[in-house]
Design a protein around this nucleic acid. Structure first.
Lengths: 246, 246
DNA sequence: CGAAGTTTTGATCAAATTCAAGAGTAGTGG
DNA sequence: CCACTACTCTTGAATTTGATCAAAACTTCG
């Protein structure tokens, strides 16, 4: 692994800035880490790969490392007797494996093939202690995850299946836009049952909700992983019972 | 306001420790701040009071201060056309008003009479920059809030109303226990409609769920704010479809 | 005591779950 | 390249559950 050779090696962590007041309608995500900080992290990290579906760690495992995603999508979930609930999807630039107390509080697995930095917690902690500006950035990132968790909860309290699905699509679209990807089409890396586990409905309800939106000509699907919103007005009417932000 | 006179003046922030591996079955919350740090915060803070029901700040307001609760209960909520969704309840030792980008992302109001430290964000930021150990503690606290948000989501995906209510009671009990309060009886400072807004059901559904648990002799209520679990086995059977932690 | 606010309870209705079967996709090996 | 199998997804019919609307009981507080 080549360290310090390339100028921009090392984990990237992106987030919307915490202090700097921004335009609420056009959030910009910044690269939080300086080249030096990224290099410092790179020095203690290793690069790991996971195949699609592969488990990264299990709930309650002793936590020895955090991860920063280079590419791919990771699902954080909690298994329980009847199925499992998906807590969050992580994408490139996201940081996970941190919010615990010596043990991981969720299980994680690769939703697609994943490449990531693995950052040993002991070393991370050492670096944080000596790098005041760094942990402020971790704070920023955590705030972002917290806000997303709250939006997730907002989605979950909706009663109508179509509203939940629309809010889910909206959420994906925003994440995608803020990440700089083309926004004319929504890319859904995960499968239908993962969507179901995230929005808290059954697989069939998700399927029906898709059908409903399609037959009402609100969305179209190029294939199971690509959705386009064609009637924005109707779409927004579905979600704006709950949407005060954006 | 007397500063530095009393030894233990200044905001208190409690959280379960992040690094130190603990017994998952007996979490201990630590006072995160040293006396010096608390004094530093006290120097820049003022003490504020809010009456029951009073709004502390509104969603999308420009964020100028964070708050640390001395006593009372605060609800963080998002209003929308039909009712409002409660994102979180904050208790003494909790920190809120932080997870935004120049603007508050939720509204907050006092659920009971509240006394709190008000910490101007600009000053807080200055202190964080010069106080490496302090922001690690903020990280710890944010991780705790994140975990709680995820447990909340776990509650919200439950289908049965009685299960949701049971998980809510369980959550309250744990928060109470971890805070060092007597655990033989669960104290619910908020009213029924707040519970409804938190668990994502209607007021009547909450009422019915209570009735159901009472008539099945799983809980008793001394009054509307005090609940006792009398059939732990049945209670756990309700929630342990989802409970792998605790 | 009265009035406003909160909570409980009832009857009907809408919507998602469940259970089950059928269609579509992908991945494998001949 | 096609056929075969396993898997994911869609669709249907019956059932369950909570939402809705509305009215009655209970609390609180001036």
């Amino acid at each position: 692994m080549s360290l310090s050779a390339k100028q921009s090696a090392g984990p990237m962590v992106f987030a919307v800035h915490l202090w700097r007041p921004g335009n609420p309608h056009k959030r910009v995500r910044h690269q939080l880490l300086s080249d030096d900080e990224r290099a410092a992290l790179a020095r203690i990290s290793s690069i790991v790969r996971f195949g699609k579906g592969e488990q990264i760690y299990n709930q309650a495992d002793v936590a020895d490392a955090a991860f920063s995603i280079i590419s791919g999508v990771v699902t954080a979930y909690r298994a329980h007797s009847d199925g499992s609930h998906i807590v969050s999807f992580f994408h490139s630039g996201d940081l996970f494996g941190l919010s615990e107390e010596g043990r991981y509080s969720n299980a994680t697995k690769a939703a697609t093939p994943v490449v990531a930095y693995k950052i040993p917690l002991s070393a991370l902690r050492r670096i944080l202690d000596n790098n005041p500006s760094l942990d402020v950035n971790v704070i920023v990132k955590l705030c972002e995850e917290l806000r997303e968790a709250q939006r997730h909860a907002l989605l979950l309290v909706q009663r109508r299946a179509t509203t939940r699905l629309a809010m889910f699509l909206d959420l994906q679209q925003h994440l995608q836009a803020v990440r700089g990807a083309p926004a004319h089409e929504i890319y859904l890396p995960m499968d239908r049952s993962s969507i179901a586990a995230y929005v808290g409905m059954t697989l069939s309800a998700v399927s029906r909700a898709f059908r409903s939106l399609i037959s009402r000509k609100i969305i179209t699907t190029r294939d199971r992983h690509h959705v386009k919103i064609i009637d924005k007005a109707a779409f927004n009417k579905l979600i704006d019972t709950a949407t005060l932000d954006k």
